[in-house]
Design a protein around this nucleic acid. Structure first.
Lengths: 147, 147
DNA sequence: TCAAGATTGATGCAAGTGCATCTATTGGTA
DNA sequence: TACCAATAGATGCACTTGCATCAATCTTGA
C-alpha cells in the first residue's frame, strides 16, 4: 500500500489514461454525431433497466456506476425532467429515492444501442481478437471494487 | 469498422470505463488530499519536461495528451498564470505558440511525483504482478493512436 | 501572385462539475 | 425514550468544460 509502483505499473497507468481518453473520445463523438445523449445517460438507463421494476436506490446506482453523489443527483434530475427516469420516495427509508426507468427511457436506450455498439467496435473491438479482449477485460476487472 | 462488437469487446469496454473511473478517483483523491493540482496539470508538466528546452507547440501537446483544443488552451492559460508554463510565439509559424515548462513547473512536478507514485501503486500496481502489469500495458497500448 | 481552403489557437456563452454544506431521516447507545 | 453520530440526497457558488465560432496565419494550386 505504501510501496513505490513498478515501472510496468506506471506504464500501465499512463496507458490506461490515454487509452480511455481515446476510446471515450471515439464513442462520445459517435453518439453526439447521431444526435444522441452521452455515455453517462446510457449507463444510467442500462443499470436501471437491468434492475427491473423494483428500480434502484440512488446510492446503489451511484455505487454501481462510480459516479459522484452530487453528480448523479443532478444527472437524475435532468433525466427525470426529460422523462426517461422516474423518482419515487422509498417505502423503506424516508430519506431515500427509488429510481426506475420509464418506457421512454427504455426506448431511448434501445435507440442508442446500435450507434453505441458500432462505436465500441471501433474504439475497442477491432483492436483485439476475442481472446485478447477477454484477457483485457479480466485484467480491467481487477481494478474495480465490484469484481 | 461497421461490425457489431463481440461480447468480449463489450465487456472489456464496460470494464474500461469502471476501472478508469475507480483508478482516477483514487489518484485524484490522493492528489487533492495532499493539496496538489490535479492529474491534467501533471500530464502537461511531464510532457513539457520531456520535451526539454525546445518546448512543444500547443497542437503537439494536445495530440500527445488527447486533450480537447479549447480545453488545453485554457488549461495552459491557468498554468501560465500560475507560473509553471511559459508561452512564446513560434518562430516558424505566426499562428503558433511554443510552450515550455518553467523552473517552478519542474519543481511542482517533482513535488507531485511521490504522492502520485503512491497513488498509482494503490490504484493499479497492487492489483497486478509485474508480468500482468506488462501485459495490461501492452493491451492498453493497442487502443491509442501513438502506439 | 492571389484567392480558396486549411490550420492554429482563443473566446462568449450555456451546461456540467466539484466543493462545501444543508436538511431530513435513520440507527445505535445509553 | 432521548440523544448523537451516520447516512441519503439536494443545492448555492465558483470553476471547468463543450460547443460554436472567430481572427490570424499558412498552404495549395491555378
Amino acid at each position: 500500500m505504501s510501496d513505490r509502483p513498478s515501472e510496468a505499473a506506471v506504464r500501465a497507468w499512463a496507458r490506461l489514461e490515454r487509452a480511455h481518453r481515446a476510446a471515450v473520445g471515439t464513442v462520445e463523438a459517435r453518439l453526439a454525431g447521431a444526435g444522441l445523449p452521452d455515455l453517462a445517460w446510457y449507463d444510467v438507463l442500462l443499470e436501471l433497466e437491468r434492475a427491473g421494476t423494483g428500480g434502484l436506490r440512488s446510492f446503489q446506482l451511484q455505487a454501481a456506476l462510480l459516479f459522484q453523489q452530487y453528480n448523479l443527483s443532478r444527472l437524475v434530475d435532468r433525466m427525470t425532467e426529460a422523462g426517461h427516469v422516474a423518482k419515487a420516495p422509498s417505502p423503506d427509508d424516508g430519506r431515500g429515492l427509488v429510481l426506475t426507468i420509464t418506457r421512454s427511457g427504455r426506448a431511448l436506450r434501445r435507440k442508442m444501442w446500435p450507434v453505441y455498439a458500432l462505436a465500441i467496435e471501433e474504439a475497442v473491438g477491432r483492436h483485439f481478437t476475442d481472446a485478447e479482449a477477454r484477457t483485457f477485460g479480466d485484467l480491467l476487472g481487477r481494478l474495480h471494487p465490484s469484481g
